[in-house]
Amino acid sequence: MHGPVLPGWLLVALCAATGSYCLLRMRSGSARARRAAGGEAVMGFGMAAMAVPAAFLAPPPWMLTGYAVVFGGAALRALWLAWGGAHHLHHVVGSLAMVYMALAMTPPAGGAGAQAGHAGHAAGGVPLLTGVLLVYFAGYVLSTGARLLPGAAAGAPGATLTWGARPELALACRLSMGIAMLAMLVTV
């Protein structure tokens, strides 16, 4: 990820922590909830890997292609699972956004000579597509954040939930990954 180093590392920590909690969520709940948590764990760890500041480790082109392949596969899996629930459609959009960012980070073929006049600039994305994704994720962040407000979701009084089955923590993870996606898209 291009940009300042400290925010990049904070983004790596946030995404890795979110991915770890999603792994914990995979241990409880229904099969559908476990599949969703698994998809979110892949997204969290993948975002953490892609958010490593380029000043620390510039990923080789083959790694960026690997990200595109992994998230393309995740998008296909989420599309397959979308037949059963709307949340998986968000996973499709998120996975395709990761494919887009990986491809946008890939330098053009031809090496340094192909970038004449653009020395010091990385490959970029399509402004219109980046804008559409920014609007989508901004809306997702706002709607998810609104569901975290007191009184927005009524929990069963007296119910004891394990850490892996707390709906407000799952929403908080989704919110943090949405914010992280916004931060990553801004750098494209």
Rank of each mutant, 00 (worst) to 15 (best):
T18S: 15
F45S: 08
T65A: 14
G39I: 05
A37N: 06
E40Y: 11
A31F: 11
T18W: 03
A31E: 15
T65F: 11
C22S: 15
A54P: 00
P61D: 10
W9C: 09
S28N: 08
L64T: 01
L64H: 07
S30H: 01
L24Y: 10
A55D: 14
G8L: 08
A36N: 09
L14K: 07
Y67E: 04
A48T: 01
A68L: 04
A13M: 14
M47C: 09
A17P: 10
L10V: 12
W9Y: 15
M26P: 02
A68D: 01
M26T: 10
A49Q: 01
S20E: 03
A41W: 00
A55Y: 02
A54I: 10
L57K: 06
A41Q: 01
A16G: 10
V42R: 01
L23E: 06
M50E: 06
E40H: 14
G38I: 02
M43F: 13
V12I: 14
W62C: 11
A54C: 05
C22G: 07
R25M: 14
W62I: 12
A16P: 06
P61K: 06
A51D: 03
F45A: 09
A55S: 14
A49K: 00
A68H: 01
P53R: 08
A33P: 03
L10A: 13
E40W: 11
M43G: 04
M26G: 06
R34W: 00
T65D: 13
R25V: 13
G46L: 06
A16D: 08
C15D: 12
W62F: 15
Y67L: 13
L10T: 08
C22A: 15
T18N: 12
A49H: 03
P59W: 11
G29C: 00
V12P: 07
A68T: 05
C15V: 08
M47P: 03
S28V: 15
L24K: 07
A51N: 03
P59Q: 07
G46Y: 05
M43L: 15
F71P: 00
G39C: 11
S30A: 09
F71W: 07
A31D: 13
C22I: 02
A58V: 12
F71Y: 11
A41C: 04
F71E: 02
A17G: 13
A41M: 02
A37R: 01
L11N: 12
G19D: 00
A17S: 14
G66D: 05
T65Q: 10
A51K: 03
W9K: 05
W9F: 15
G66Q: 01
G39M: 10
W62N: 09
P60S: 08
V52S: 06
V12E: 09
A37E: 04
G38E: 03
A58Y: 07
A41E: 01
L57H: 12
G39L: 11
T65G: 10
V12N: 03
Y67R: 01
G66K: 06
R25C: 15
A31C: 07
E40D: 13
L23C: 14
A37T: 06
A51H: 04
G19F: 01
